[in-house]
């Protein structure tokens, strides 16, 4: 039992760390503010959640009420991260868009802007 639980804990935290590594490499390698937000926003939210789920699973080693409550507390934090992560990413992205930060890939920092009209929707 404890063996299986340990496997789950290691699996979740391990996947979390791998995603964190990916996010970090992304922040370093991506060329501009907007693309870096992709790395920071997505990798961060998921890896934090994965690591927290791993921690919550670790609490189940001692299945008494106190440990269960700690596990629930950690799951609540994970849910909060799942809500606040994308919200914060959107807020930073919105602020960057509003202050007209240069885009990568064009000489003058402008960007190809694709506008979809109402009647073009399928």
């Amino acid at each position: 039992m404890s063996m299986y639980l340990n496997t789950i804990v290691v699996l979740f935290t391990g996947i979390g760390w791998i995603f964190f590594l990916g996010a970090t490499v992304g922040i370093l390698r991506f060329p501009d503010f907007y693309t870096r937000m992709h790395a920071a926003g997505k990798g961060d939210t998921l890896s934090t959640m994965m690591i927290l789920f791993g921690f919550a699973a670790y609490q189940l080693h001692h299945p008494d009420l106190a440990s269960l409550l700690v596990a629930f507390k950690i799951v609540f934090i994970a849910v909060l991260i799942f809500i606040t992560g994308p919200t914060a990413t959107h807020a930073i992205m919105d602020a960057g868009y509003g202050s007209k930060i240069d885009h990568w890939g064009t000489r003058d920092g402008s960007v190809s802007h694709c506008l979809i009209k109402e009647d073009e929707r399928s």
Partner: peptide
């Protein structure tokens, strides 16, 4: 994101899409 970041050529083509 990870798949793009770990490829040496960094296959991205960023842009904006405006949508009703």
């Amino acid at each position: 994101v990870m798949a793009r970041v770990l490829k040496p050529r960094l296959p991205i083509d960023p842009g904006l899409v405006e949508f009703p």
